[in-house]
Every structure is written in structure tokens, then in C-alpha cells.
């Protein structure tokens, strides 16, 4: 069947007009995400602070004296050129200990976040797809979530013994239920989509449906949640160390540095202020980053245009409307009574 081009008939549906230049779009998707990230001020600020802290953790210990060098003569020196953050009651350099503490804190936080994400994802997905497993796993996680996080972590540390690796294990047990819940609820939504039914109709196995097809769809909420776990586990680790149940001394962590400085807070403020500032800014940075990622990964969230342009247009419109309102005060809504008479 041949058709002349002047008839509206065509044997086969054509490819959409303009769909061909969409291929470039896919390629630039990553750079587009980076651009959007840079445009999201809060996320960008958080990300930058986190990068700085990470750089301090990586390079700080190389540039500072050993954080373990005890020097009796240098005890409790206030901040100076030689010791920018001062020295502690053993004469150790506080800057060096803060930098070394950053290593410990970030390592514990990041490792916990990764472990929690993997475990939480597995538990959440499995629960979403198996009714019996769902009952059991979700009741266990309810039980775990019923304890205050810090109390549960202390109990686990007491059982396992005071070791950095055990801190990670304890924090993973504490935070996995939160991640699992998020993953489960996202997976329940994805499971109802038609493509899952289509896979069943093709005869796909449960493993294939869950791990190859549903899993990639829960990655966005998982990343966001893992970011928050990152922040939470740094804070909880600091709290554990402050209570003496976390990273064992003499290894510095921001938490046990606070503990060391607690009794000397009036004589040597620098021993508590510097690690405190680092904890605060790191947590703030990670939370900003997490909020930003949640916005950026949410398909329904779209930063419209830059705020300034938008405000300018809005102001112009408001002004125009105001003049219009002045001119048309006579044309107020006519009341129904007035109309019927």
C-alpha cells in the first residue's frame, strides 16, 4: 500500500516530531543534575561545608603534629600560632585531635550510612514483597524503634565491648529500621505500578522483580534517608563517646574530646568549643545536603526559575494589578440582589 504524501494516510506511525534531539538530553542529564545542585543554595552550602570537613579529615593529620604526642610542658596552652586550637590537659594539639577526630567521626558516620542503606534496602524490599516476612520484620523494627536510639546504642555497646567497629555495628542496628520503613513504603507504591504486573505476566521470578526492577525505583528515597543516617550516626557516635561508651581513648573522636574538656570548660574553653563547632557545622551541612537531595531527587519538585527573576516579575504584576484596581473600583462584583432587580 503506497500513499502519496498529500494524503493524511500513512502506513506506519511516524516517530514523534522533535523526539530525535532528546538523545542529547539523556547525555546531559548528569550535568543537568549538577547544575540544579549548584543552583540549590542550601544543598550547595551543605555540600561545600562537608567537602571542607572531609578535606580537613584527609589532609589535616598530615599537616599537624601527632594527636597522640603528650608534652607535659605544653599543657592547656590557649590558641596560639603554634597551636591554633590550643592544647589539652596532656599537652596534645587540639587542632590535630580535631582533624583526627574528623577522620573517626566521618568514617563511623559514612560506614554506618552505607551499612544501614544496604541492610535497610534489603529488609525493606523483602518486607514489601512478602506478607509473612513483612509481619515479622516490621514488628522487629517496631521493637527496635521503641527504644531511644542512644539507650539502645549504649546497651549494644555494653554487650559488644568498646571498639570503633562495634560502634558501627551498634549504630547500624539502631538506624536500619528507619531506612527499612522508608524503603518498604516506597516499594509498596512501586509494586502497584503496571510494569510489575507486566513482569508477572511475562513469568518473571520474584527475585528478578524485586532486585532488578523495583530496587532501582527506591534508590532516590534511600539516598536521602542514608544522608540523614550519616548525620544522625555522627551525633550518636559523639554522644556515645561523650558518655564513654563510644570510640575508646586515646583515639580522639569529637565526642570524647568534649568529654575530656568538660571539667576544664572554665579554664580551657578551646578544648570543648572547637570539637563542638565541628560537630555542629558537620551535622548542619549534612542535613542541608539531605534536604537538598530530597528536593532535587523528587520528580514533582522543580525549582522554577531563579528566585530573583521570579520576584521581579511578581512585583511588576502586583504593581500593574494595583493600578488596574484603582481604575476599576466601580466594577466590583455586582451582587446578586442588584442583578435581579
Amino acid at each position: 500500500m503506497t500513499h502519496s504524501t498529500t494524503t493524511p494516510h500513512s502506513a506506519r506511525p511516524d516517530i514523534t516530531v522533535g523526539s530525535l534531539n532528546r538523545i542529547d538530553k539523556t547525555r546531559s542529564r548528569r550535568s543537568k543534575f549538577l547544575r540544579r545542585f549548584a543552583a540549590h543554595k542550601l544543598a550547595f552550602t551543605g555540600g561545600s561545608i562537608l567537602v571542607i570537613v572531609t578535606l580537613v579529615a584527609i589532609f589535616g593529620p598530615m599537616l599537624t603534629p601527632s594527636p597522640f604526642d603528650v608534652a607535659g610542658a605544653n599543657r592547656l596552652q590557649p590558641p596560639s600560632l603554634e597551636h591554633p586550637f590550643g592544647t589539652d590537659n596532656y599537652g596534645r594539639d587540639v587542632l590535630a585531635r580535631v582533624a583526627e577526630g574528623a577522620r573517626v567521626s566521618l568514617f563511623v558516620g559514612a560506614f554506618t550510612a552505607v551499612c544501614t542503606a544496604v541492610l535497610g534496602c534489603a529488609v525493606g524490599l523483602y518486607a514489601a514483597y512478602n506478607r509473612v516476612a513483612d509481619m515479622i520484620l516490621m514488628r522487629i523494627s517496631d521493637g527496635l524503634m521503641a527504644f531511644p536510639a542512644i539507650l539502645l546504642a549504649i546497651a549494644i555497646m555494653a554487650a559488644l565491648g568498646q571498639q570503633t567497629s562495634n560502634v558501627i555495628i551498634a549504630l547500624t542496628i539502631v538506624f536500619t529500621p528507619y531506612v527499612a520503613r522508608i524503603v518498604r513504603s516506597s516499594a509498596l507504591v512501586v509494586r502497584e505500578q503496571t510494569f510489575v504486573e507486566a513482569l508477572k505476566a511475562q513469568g518473571a521470578s520474584r527475585t528478578r522483580i524485586i532486585w532488578i526492577n523495583i530496587a532501582p525505583n527506591v534508590v532516590s528515597p534511600l539516598i536521602v534517608q542514608a544522608t540523614f543516617v550519616f548525620a544522625d550516626s555522627i551525633i550518636t557516635e559523639a554522644a556515645l563517646s561523650f558518655l564513654g561508651a563510644g570510640v575508646p581513648p586515646p583515639a580522639p573522636s569529637w565526642g570524647n574530646m568534649l568529654l575530656d574538656g568538660k571539667n576544664l570548660i572554665y579554664t580551657a574553653w578551646w578544648m570543648t568549643v572547637f570539637p563542638g563547632v565541628f560537630i555542629m557545622s558537620t551535622i548542619l551541612a549534612i542535613n542541608l545536603l539531605g534536604d537538598g537531595l530530597r528536593d532535587l531527587l523528587d520528580p514533582t519538585y522543580r525549582s522554577k526559575t531563579s528566585g530573583r527573576k521570579r520576584k521581579a516579575r511578581k512585583a511588576a504584576r502586583a504593581a500593574a494589578r494595583q493600578t488596574a484596581a484603582h481604575q476599576s473600583t466601580a466594577s466590583r462584583p455586582t451582587t446578586r440582589e442588584g442583578e435581579s432587580s
Binding site: 498529500t6 506511525p13 516517530i15 514523534t16 516530531v17 522533535g18
Partner: peptide, 27 residues
Amino acid sequence: DLPIIPGAVPTLTQVPDGCRFAARCPF
């Protein structure tokens, strides 16, 4: 077969110049 209009409605970010239907129009 049913007579068809080839192609699909372009997205609003890719509005063609001139007549907007021209690319799908047999005339």
C-alpha cells in the same frame, strides 16, 4: 486502516516556528 495524523503533539518546550501543525500536516 484508519486514516491517521502522523507523529505526536510536540512538547511546549519545542514549539515549531510558523504553523505549529505543519510538521504533521499532509498539506
